[in-house]
Design a protein around this nucleic acid. Structure first.
Length: 272
DNA sequence: GTCCAGGCATGCA
DNA sequence: TGCATGCATGGA
């Protein structure tokens, strides 16, 4: 990958295995918005970005070298060799055609607080409605960092909300989970940074102690917000996929099961 | 009207 | 330990 700084834009040449449409709209992140020109706009860690792709060239608009190095390289995982990862996953003959069909899905390294909060909201819910709830949450309690684009509100900000405030966002029975989660993260009772330093099993145990977090939400948070590529979330769609793996997951998934999972999840939602 | 969605807490055996 | 049940909401 070659990086060029052109005015306030950053141009990345020779980026392999990154499909923005698939990656930004496959149910792992809920806040990216596709623009009329087919580019994508969003806010991560309070910073706005517009990103587009032409061939193997990625263009990040109106950003800076600092933000690129501090946020976007990690978020889009530009330094990870997804070509090699996909080649490894394709050793599984069942997954191989799915990797080809949806080539370019990456796991985004999201902010851990946003990911945890988002996947508590996601439980027993559909993606369209999850997006609506999170959009309202950010519009009302986030900060407008650009016209029409808002930051994800901090735990500290949300720790002032009541259960009723969360219910008014349409979160339903999850409101009580969110109310306690915000207070516990804000107070430090839950330490998300510390969880990142633990082993996968220990990190999962910590998350499972949280009110409203079960095995599915924990694994989603670990995969999408805590950098655990081997976390393997199983929801109603993945339960259907697992019938194709009666003998367990193949060895080539080791260490990157979460990435395989995202291809399978996408396939299931489109075919089952 | 019924069913379902990136499930979980709770009570009970 | 495993299983049944209730839970909010809105789209299909």
């Amino acid at each position: 990958m070659k990086v060029s700084y052109v005015g306030n834009d950053i141009v990345l040449d020779d980026v392999k295995c990154l499909d923005l449409d698939l990656t930004l709209d496959c149910g792992q992140a809920f806040r990216w918005e596709k623009q009329a020109d087919s580019s994508w706009s969003g806010v991560v860690k309070g910073v706005f970005l517009n990103i587009s792709k032409m061939g193997d060239t990625i263009i990040l608009k109106n950003t800076s070298k600092d933000d690129f190095e501090n946020i976007w390289i990690d978020y889009f995982d530009f330094n990870k060799d997804y070509v090699e990862i996909c080649d490894t996953l394709k050793q599984d003959t069942l997954l191989a055609p799915t990797v080809d069909a949806y080539y370019g899905i990456r796991i985004l390294n999201q902010d851990s607080w946003e990911a945890l909060c988002s996947f508590v909201i996601s439980q027993q819910n559909n993606i369209k409605r999850i997006k609506g709830i999170i959009s309202r949450l950010c519009r009302i309690y986030g900060e407008e960092v650009r016209s029409g684009f808002y930051s994800f509100p901090s735990a500290k900000r949300l720790s002032n909300l009541t259960v009723e405030d969360f219910e008014n966002l349409g979160t339903g029975y999850r409101a009580k989970y969110l109310e306690r989660l915000a207070k516990d993260v804000a107070s430090g009772v839950i330490d998300l940074e510390k969880i990142k330093t633990l082993s996968l099993d220990d990190a999962r145990k910590e998350l499972l102690n949280i009110y409203g977090v079960g095995i599915k939400v924990a694994n989603c948070a670990l995969l999408f917000g805590f950098g655990f590529y081997d976390a393997f979330p199983v929801d109603v769609w993945m339960k259907r996929v697992m019938e194709y793996y009666p003998d367990g997951l193949p060895q080539c998934f080791d260490g990157i099961g979460g990435i395989a999972q995202q291809y399978l999840f996408h396939w299931a939602r489109n075919h089952l």
